[in-house]
Simulated scan of single mutants.
Amino acid sequence: MSARKKLWKLLYKNSFLYDPIKGFNLSSGGHSDVYFDCKKTTLTSQGMILVGQLFWEEIKGTLAEGIGGLSLGADPIVCATVIHAAREGKEITGFLVRKEPKKYGTQRWIEGLIKKGMKVVIVEDVVTTGGSVLKAIFRAEEAGLQVIKVITLIDREEGGRTVIEGKGYEYIPIFTRSDFIKREG
């Protein structure tokens, strides 16, 4: 069985919630009959291995020197991908974008060993409107990083792709909402 299929099964079992009656409130402010609680998969040993493998497969052919995204959804993806790259003998730097700047010490928005001019990939666990991705992109570019691609674990297919691509960024979802709804429908 492929890594993609194994990860889909884990996400479906651990992270996919469907409630057509009550639904779920989303961080974007919207409401949906579907909710993806990805950390219930990305923070498991098997989930982390598969996430690292699939995200690294999307990155390794690029000029990316770094991978990062907005905390907390991106954190396990970043860590898993960096480890997977290292296991293949490749060097890539992980970084995390805070939701607010550190209140002491350096008062940074971004944690990690970054350098101006680095080519980076922005990652996210779930994209709905694209707002969190755009925040991460803004902070990365503000720090002098060059965003070359955006990859998400799941695209909810609610406009995020259009927003991200509309800003000129290459966008790759590993899975989409439709990949999970087909099974429920």
Rank of each mutant, 00 (worst) to 15 (best):
L153H: 02
I174Q: 10
K13H: 12
N14P: 04
I148M: 08
Y35K: 06
M1G: 09
I181G: 10
E111V: 01
I137Y: 00
I67P: 02
K167Y: 03
Y18P: 08
Y18N: 00
I154H: 03
I154V: 14
W56T: 08
G47S: 04
D179A: 03
G47F: 00
P173M: 03
T41E: 07
V34G: 07
G112C: 08
T106C: 13
I49G: 11
L72N: 10
F175A: 00
L17C: 15
A140I: 06
E88Y: 13
P101Y: 15
I77T: 13
C38A: 11
H84C: 10
K39P: 09
T81V: 01
L10H: 06
F95G: 02
G112E: 05
D75G: 00
I114L: 01
E184Q: 04
M1A: 11
P101F: 15
G30M: 04
K149P: 03
E88H: 12
F24I: 05
T93Q: 14
I172G: 05
A143C: 12
V78T: 14
G68L: 05
A80F: 04
Y169P: 03
I114P: 00
A86L: 15
L145H: 09
E65G: 06
A143Q: 11
M48C: 15
K149Q: 08
L50C: 10
P173F: 08
T128Q: 09
I77C: 12
A74R: 00
K13W: 10
Y12T: 00
W56R: 01
F138Q: 14
E158Y: 07
F55I: 04
R139W: 05
R4V: 12
W56K: 07
K99F: 14
G105I: 10
P76H: 03
L113I: 15
T44R: 01
R183V: 15
T44E: 01
E88T: 10
I77G: 06
E91A: 13
E100V: 14
R156F: 02
D179H: 00
L70H: 08
L26W: 10
L63R: 13
A136F: 08
G52S: 04
T62V: 11
M118E: 02
G112Y: 05
E141M: 11
K6L: 01
I110H: 07
V82K: 02
Y12A: 02
T162W: 13
E65M: 07
Y35D: 06
D37L: 02
V78K: 09
V133H: 03
R139D: 01
I77S: 10
F55E: 00
L134T: 07
R108M: 14
G160A: 12
P76I: 02
I77F: 11
Y104D: 08
